[in-house]
């Protein structure tokens, strides 16, 4: 095994008096698909924000491909999907994608934009302002935007939010394709079945710590639910 795609080394994070993470460590090999599970307020989003470098840990450090996350080469390899759209409402889908392909120096931008728009089935609305899109359409464009520069590390924070059944299936197919291409993927979701279908490995965060880190093949969604998310498993995390 070469350099891990991601190393999280003893991360802690506080927001004033609020504790978000305590001593979280794990590493992810290139090509792995990891689901991060946990209740509301467990610290999943905080963890992804620290990995992407937009938020600083109070303690510990993160390495992407063996180096600092803020290195420009690392940023160029990274894609983030979060609850924020990263899109301009007052621009059309095409204009948004053109803007980002210039910033990310995407080769053959025209063709690439066509491909990603087709992947998320928005080609027919490409000349419309994003402000006029429905929630789910916006989320699909967010996905297209994230995949535009062919990132090798994807951080997906509840990417299924707002998608209908058909679009969920579409995203699952897309993510499977990304996995086949050898991309490294971290996903947070509350849908244990989807997590099970997609990922090789799962990490459960509870009370600011990793309480489980195992292979999907060794478990099943119901066992995870029973163990960590049932009423007996204990109160809320926030």
């Amino acid at each position: 095994m070469g350099v891990p795609a991601l190393e999280v080394l003893g991360i802690s994070k506080d927001f004033g008096r609020i504790i978000a993470l305590r001593g979280v460590s794990f590493s992810v090999q290139s090509g792995e698909f990891v689901s991060i599970l946990g209740r509301n307020g467990a610290g999943k989003t905080t963890l992804l924000n620290i990995i992407s470098g937009v938020s600083r840990p109070s303690e510990g450090e993160v390495k992407l491909f063996g180096t600092d996350p803020s290195d420009r080469e690392n940023k160029a390899k990274l894609a983030v999907i979060s609850h924020e759209m990263f899109l301009y409402g007052n621009l059309t889908a095409i204009e948004n994608l053109e803007y980002y392909s210039r910033i990310y120096n995407v080769p053959n931008p025209k063709q690439r934009i066509e491909t990603v728009l087709n992947d998320v089935e928005l080609t027919h609305r490409r000349f419309d302002l994003v402000a006029t899109y429905s929630r789910g359409m916006t989320q699909r464009l967010t996905i297209a935007r994230a995949l535009l520069h062919e990132p090798s590390l994807l951080l997906l924070d509840e990417p299924f939010t707002g998608l209908d059944q058909h679009a969920i299936g579409m995203l699952i197919t897309l993510l499977k394709k990304q996995k086949e291409m050898g991309r490294t993927i971290l996903l947070t979701t509350h849908d244990l079945h989807t997590a099970n279908e997609l990922s090789d490995r799962y990490i459960v965060i509870s009370k600011h710590k990793i309480v489980m880190d195992g292979l999907m093949t060794d478990t099943n969604p119901d066992a995870i639910r029973e163990k960590f998310f049932s009423a007996e498993a204990g109160g809320i995390d926030s």
């Binding site: 992407s52 470098g53 937009v54 420009r72 080469e73 690392n74 940023k75 160029a76 990274l78 983030v80 979060s82 924020e84 759209m85 990263f86 899109l87 301009y88 409402g89 007052n90 910033i103 990310y104």
Partner: peptide, 18 residues
């Protein structure tokens, strides 16, 4: 305000640029 609206300022922090 435009940059703040949809988290675009965060997108800028993620960009592989100076």
């Amino acid at each position: 305000a435009l940059e703040k609206e949809n988290g675009n300022l965060r997108a800028m922090a993620l960009m592989p640029v100076d």
